[in-house]
Amino acid sequence: MTHLYSNEEILARAKMLAERLSSTEQVQFYKQAEAKISSNQKVQRLVDRIKHYQKESVNLQHFGKTEAYHQNEAVIDRLQKELESIPVVQEFKQSQEDVNDFLQLLVKLVSQQVFKKNQSTQSDN
Score class of each variant (00 low, 15 high):
residue 68 A to K: 11
residue 91 E to Q: 01
residue 4 L to F: 08
residue 40 N to I: 03
residue 45 R to A: 09
residue 85 S to Y: 05
residue 18 A to G: 04
residue 71 Q to P: 11
residue 6 S to R: 04
residue 79 L to F: 07
residue 117 K to G: 04
residue 55 K to P: 03
residue 73 E to D: 10
residue 66 T to W: 07
residue 119 Q to D: 12
residue 89 V to T: 09
residue 105 L to W: 11
residue 21 L to E: 07
residue 75 V to A: 07
residue 24 T to S: 04
residue 22 S to Y: 10
residue 115 F to W: 05
residue 34 E to D: 14
residue 79 L to S: 00
residue 90 Q to C: 02
residue 97 E to I: 03
residue 28 Q to P: 01
residue 34 E to S: 13
residue 46 L to G: 02
residue 50 I to Y: 06
residue 80 Q to I: 02
residue 98 D to R: 12
residue 6 S to A: 01
residue 98 D to S: 14
residue 54 Q to N: 08
residue 79 L to I: 02
residue 4 L to K: 13
residue 83 L to M: 01
residue 29 F to A: 10
residue 21 L to H: 01
residue 45 R to L: 12
residue 46 L to V: 06
residue 110 V to Y: 05
residue 83 L to I: 04
residue 104 Q to D: 13
residue 14 A to F: 00
residue 117 K to T: 15
residue 107 V to M: 15
residue 91 E to D: 10
residue 104 Q to A: 14
residue 48 D to P: 03
residue 116 K to I: 12
residue 85 S to I: 09
residue 27 V to E: 00
residue 81 K to L: 12
residue 28 Q to A: 08
residue 77 D to N: 09
residue 71 Q to C: 02
residue 80 Q to W: 08
residue 62 H to S: 13
residue 124 D to V: 14
residue 84 E to T: 02
residue 106 L to P: 07
residue 69 Y to K: 05
residue 52 H to C: 08
residue 41 Q to T: 06
residue 83 L to C: 02
residue 33 A to G: 01
residue 3 H to Q: 15
residue 104 Q to Y: 13
residue 58 V to R: 10
residue 97 E to C: 01
residue 43 V to C: 00
residue 80 Q to K: 11
residue 82 E to V: 00
residue 66 T to N: 15
residue 4 L to D: 11
residue 30 Y to P: 01
residue 70 H to C: 06
residue 90 Q to A: 05
residue 13 R to P: 15
residue 3 H to A: 14
residue 85 S to Q: 06
residue 107 V to Y: 15
residue 35 A to V: 15
residue 73 E to W: 03
residue 117 K to D: 12
residue 103 L to Y: 07
residue 54 Q to H: 08
residue 118 N to I: 14
residue 121 T to L: 09
residue 61 Q to N: 14
residue 56 E to Q: 06
residue 7 N to P: 05
residue 18 A to R: 10
residue 15 K to I: 15
residue 48 D to E: 08
residue 44 Q to T: 00
residue 29 F to Q: 05
residue 45 R to Q: 07
residue 57 S to V: 05
residue 60 L to R: 08
residue 61 Q to E: 07
residue 78 R to D: 11
residue 119 Q to R: 05
residue 21 L to A: 02
residue 110 V to R: 12
residue 104 Q to G: 07
residue 36 K to Q: 08
residue 120 S to V: 00
residue 82 E to H: 02
residue 76 I to H: 00
residue 35 A to Y: 10
residue 92 F to D: 06
residue 51 K to M: 08
residue 114 V to S: 06
residue 56 E to L: 11
residue 121 T to Q: 12
residue 14 A to R: 13
residue 106 L to D: 04
residue 75 V to N: 06
residue 27 V to W: 01
